[in-house]
Structures are given as structure tokens and as C-alpha cells.
């Protein structure tokens, strides 16, 4: 080993050892834990697939996977559909000199602590909250409607967060496009919709898919938003994991659920890998 290489290792070693000790090792141990079993509250190491079998058998477990998938897919689609026009307007309608400010304002609440952000939605959606009071004042409804502690509330909380994230990524994509593409399409007789459908949309697709993938990953792994806003009528996978940790200290089952969660994310990655530009985030 040359002296240069040896010195190089010296610089890289602390970060590498930290990642190995506190990320790779715990990850491997978690994988091993998912193959262990719980007997009389003690973890028995082994190579058992019992936890995964339990997942297929017990309704509250596989239903959590379905609930997580339904919520996450809904959130991803709704967020993209809402964020795209917003990014478009900021990129092409707002005058150049105000764009940075408009974008900064559009994503400022992104930086609220995420526990606080979910609580803030609870304020808005509560029985006596802002939405119900406003709707009753203008006479649209006579009685307060139940908004908080529902799947609707969970999805609203998520969409709020991801619209901001996606507006940022889609905006970055739109302003990178040369205006010549739009001009060329218009010159060739395309109307605004045709230009969008056949020129802009395909060009921004990698950015959209990257943002959507990020949304999917962050959304499916989140515990806080469904726990605060969703009530306990239906549980997502992260909520079920936390239940295992708390009540029964069933680490093996929690680990297996975590592995399943990672499996879902890996599948999502493979599904959109050909459009993903993760190096460009």
C-alpha cells in the first residue's frame, strides 16, 4: 500500500467505522432478529421464518401493509397532481425577480417540526377547529363534521408536507428546461396543452418520478403523522412496529415488519429505477 493510500484510509476511517458500527452492524443484527423468535418474553436466536408467516396469517398485520400502501400511493399521486401546477405557475407565471421569494414562501412551513406540523393540522381539523367553524359560519354545514382522527386527516397532513417538497423538486426541473423547447413546439403549431403533454411532461418526467419516489419512501416509513392524525381506527406498518416495541417488547416481529417495509421500498425503487436520477437531488 502506497503512503498516499495509507494516509487516505486514515481520513476515511472515522466516518467509515462510524457507519459500520452504528448503521451496518445494527442493520445486520436487525435482519438476524427478524429470524429469531420470542419465547416467554425472551429472544431466542435462530433461523425461523415464523415472524414472516405470522405476517401472512394475522389480519391486523397484513392489513397494516395494505393500509400503508393505500395511504402512501394516494398521497404520492395527490401530491404530484397538486404540486405540478404550483411549480409551473411559480416557474412560468411569476415574474423572474419574485420567483426565489415565491418558492421560499411556498416551502417555508416545510421547516416546522414534524410533530408540531401534525398537531397544527389537528387544530385545523378538530371538531371545534378552523375548518368546521368556518363551514358552519357560512352555513354550508349545520353540525361539525368529523375530520380529525380519520384517514382523510392523515392524507391531508402528508399531502401538505409533500406538496412543498415536490414543488421544490419540480420547480428545479422546470427552470432547467430551455425555453427553446416551448418556443419550437408553439412555432410548430402545438397549443398550450399539446406543448405540455408532448414536450414539457416527458422532459420533466425523471424529476417527477424522483420526487414521487422520495415521497413514497418518506411517507411509508413515517410513524408520527398517522399516529397523531389518523386516530387508532386503522394502523400503518410503522404504527404496528411501534406497538410491538411498546406493549410486548416483541423485537423479532418488529424487525420482520421493518424488513418488509424495506422490501416494499426496494420494489418501489426497482419499479421506477429507469427514470430515477438520485444523484441529481
Amino acid at each position: 500500500m502506497s503512503r498516499d493510500t495509507a494516509r487516505g484510509w486514515g481520513f476515511v476511517a472515522p466516518a467509515l467505522l462510524w457507519t459500520l458500527a452504528f448503521f451496518v452492524v445494527p442493520f445486520v443484527v436487525m435482519g438476524a432478529m427478524s429470524l429469531a423468535t420470542l419465547e416467554r418474553r425472551e429472544v431466542v436466536w435462530g433461523l425461523s421464518l415464523a415472524n414472516y408467516a405470522e405476517l401472512a396469517e394475522k389480519a391486523y398485520l397484513w392489513r397494516a401493509v395494505l393500509v400503508s400502501l393505500e395511504i402512501t400511493l394516494t398521497v404520492t399521486v395527490v401530491s404530484v397532481v397538486l404540486a405540478y401546477p404550483l411549480a409551473w405557475i411559480i416557474a412560468f407565471r411569476v415574474p423572474k425577480r419574485w420567483q426565489r421569494l415565491a418558492l421560499l414562501l411556498a416551502i417555508l412551513p416545510f421547516w416546522t417540526s414534524y410533530v408540531v406540523r401534525s398537531y397544527a393540522w389537528l387544530l385545523v381539523l378538530a371538531r371545534e377547529g378552523v375548518v368546521n367553524q368556518t363551514l358552519m359560519n357560512i352555513g354550508l354545514i349545520a353540525e361539525p363534521i368529523t375530520l380529525a382522527n380519520t384517514r382523510f386527516a392523515t392524507i391531508t397532513g402528508f399531502v401538505h408536507f409533500f406538496v412543498m417538497l415536490l414543488t421544490l423538486t419540480i420547480y428545479a426541473n422546470l427552470v432547467q428546461l430551455s425555453p427553446n423547447y416551448r418556443r419550437a413546439a408553439m412555432d410548430l403549431g402545438a397549443n398550450a396543452f399539446q406543448t405540455f403533454r408532448h414536450v414539457i411532461l416527458p422532459l420533466t418526467l425523471p424529476g417527477i418520478v424522483t420526487g414521487a419516489f422520495l415521497t413514497f419512501v418518506l411517507c411509508i416509513g413515517d410513524y408520527v403523522t398517522p399516529q397523531i392524525l389518523g386516530g387508532n381506527t386503522e394502523l400503518t406498518v410503522p404504527q404496528v412496529i411501534m406497538v410491538q416495541l411498546g406493549r410486548r417488547a416483541d423485537f423479532p416481529l418488529a424487525a420482520a415488519l421493518a424488513i418488509v417495509l424495506m422490501g416494499i421500498v426496494t420494489m418501489a425503487y426497482l419499479a421506477c429505477a429507469r427514470w430515477l436520477r438520485l444523484d441529481r437531488i
Partner: peptide
């Protein structure tokens, strides 16, 4: 690599160890 894994899983792995 840790960027690609959700915080819950990072925390769970560390908690187990």
C-alpha cells in the same frame, strides 16, 4: 447508504443493538 433507509429503521436497529 443511511440516507436510503427510513429513520424508524435506523432507530430500531440501534435500539436492538
Amino acid at each position: 447508504a443511511p440516507l436510503t433507509v427510513s429513520y424508524l429503521i435506523v432507530g430500531l436497529g440501534l435500539l436492538i443493538v
